[in-house]
Amino acid sequence: MKGQEWYQADNVAEEYDDKRFSRGGRLIDRREKQAVLDALGPVDDRSILEVACGTGRFTVMLAERGADIVGLDISGPMLQQGRQKAAAADVDDHVEFMRGDAARLPFPDDHFDAVLAMRFFHLADTPAAFLAEMRRVAKEQVVFDTFNRFSTRSTYNWALPMGSRLYSRWEVDRLLDGAGLELTEATHDWVLPYGFYRKIPNELAASFRSIDTVIGGTPLGKKIASVSYWNTHV
């Protein structure tokens, strides 16, 4: 997986949320969390696995809403950040953080009601194998996101330190077919790339986000959106 060593550094874990979700990045955080909630629906008493949970942004949010959730990540420092968030939110009894490999999930078949992976597939070197594992342990639902090939992200992806794996709709359809998953809903967003929002103040970002949303609501906007959220069922 791309960036595996980088993600496991202590300083990266400690600074991760501040660097990505401060300033205009707050809009990104709110939108991603809403996308997860929209896809999963009510989570009270549902068992959920979050693959590549990182610092536990989504893990803790879902636990606060009553989910029984396991957050799995390969980075010990990232998991420690998640544990601190869970303790601060007083949801320790709903959350378990585990270090593990997404290519070999340590759970039996059909173990979770739903499996979630956000900000993961752009780093995946073998996406079909990862998605097949997620489907294996899911009884009902698999939710994930991708960065899109024909989008603004493609114009600067080459300049990123680790780059990103970009997906066309055809590639996603092929992944779903290979994993035996049926698409329930696809949502496409963010005409302007994430990196742009992170560089500007939150107040200014809100104005650009309004423009972004208007363009994104058009047929052209949906075609050039940089991010897609995929809600699938088993």
Score class of each variant (00 low, 15 high):
Ala35Thr: 00
Ile224Gly: 07
Gly195Trp: 14
Gln4Phe: 10
Gly54Asp: 11
Arg119Tyr: 07
Glu32Val: 02
Phe120Gln: 09
His122Asp: 03
Ala35Arg: 03
Ser75His: 14
Arg31Ser: 12
Ala124Phe: 03
Trp190Val: 02
Val95Leu: 03
Ala35Trp: 00
Gly66Lys: 05
Met162Asp: 14
Thr59Cys: 06
Gly56Arg: 05
Thr218Gln: 09
Ala186Ser: 14
Leu183Asp: 02
Ile74Cys: 13
Ala103Ile: 02
Glu50Phe: 10
Asn11Cys: 12
Glu171Thr: 07
Lys2Tyr: 05
Ala129Arg: 10
Val234Lys: 12
Arg198Cys: 01
Asp93Met: 04
Thr146Leu: 10
Leu40Glu: 05
Arg153Lys: 15
Asp45Trp: 01
Phe120Gly: 13
Lys33Arg: 11
Val36Lys: 01
Val172Pro: 03
His188Thr: 15
Arg104Pro: 08
Leu183Ile: 12
Asp189Glu: 15
His94Gln: 13
Arg30Met: 06
Val234Ala: 13
Arg20Tyr: 11
Arg65Tyr: 09
Thr187Lys: 09
Val91Gln: 07
Arg30Thr: 01
Asp101Pro: 00
His94Thr: 11
Trp6Arg: 03
Leu175Ala: 08
Asp17Thr: 00
Thr213Ile: 05
Arg31Asp: 04
Phe21Cys: 05
Thr146Arg: 11
Asn157Thr: 01
Pro161Thr: 07
Met162Cys: 08
Cys53Gly: 14
Arg198Lys: 13
Phe150His: 15
Ala52His: 07
Ser207Val: 14
Pro219His: 13
Pro193Gly: 05
Arg23Leu: 13
Ser210Lys: 09
Arg153Val: 10
Ser210Thr: 11
Phe196Tyr: 00
Glu50Arg: 15
Tyr7Glu: 07
Ala63Thr: 04
Glu140Asp: 11
Met78Phe: 01
Asp90Cys: 06
Gly25Thr: 05
Glu64Val: 01
Thr155Cys: 04
Ser226Ile: 07
Gln80Asp: 10
Tyr197Leu: 03
Arg165Thr: 15
Gly180Glu: 04
Thr218Tyr: 10
Pro42Cys: 04
Tyr194Asp: 06
Ala67Met: 07
Arg135Val: 13
Ser75Lys: 08
Ala87Cys: 09
Gln34Ser: 00
Met162Gly: 08
Ala138Leu: 00
Asp93Ser: 14
Asp113Asn: 06
Ala9Phe: 08
Leu175Ile: 00
Phe97Arg: 00
Lys139Leu: 15
Met78Asp: 01
Arg119Gln: 09
Asp45Pro: 03
Ala179His: 04
Gly71Asp: 06
Met78Asn: 02
Ala88Gln: 02
Arg30Tyr: 01
Gln81Val: 06
Met98Glu: 02
Ile224Arg: 08
Val36His: 01
Thr55Asn: 11
Asp125Trp: 10
Thr152Val: 15
Ile74Ala: 14
Lys33Phe: 09
Ala63Glu: 02
Phe130Trp: 14
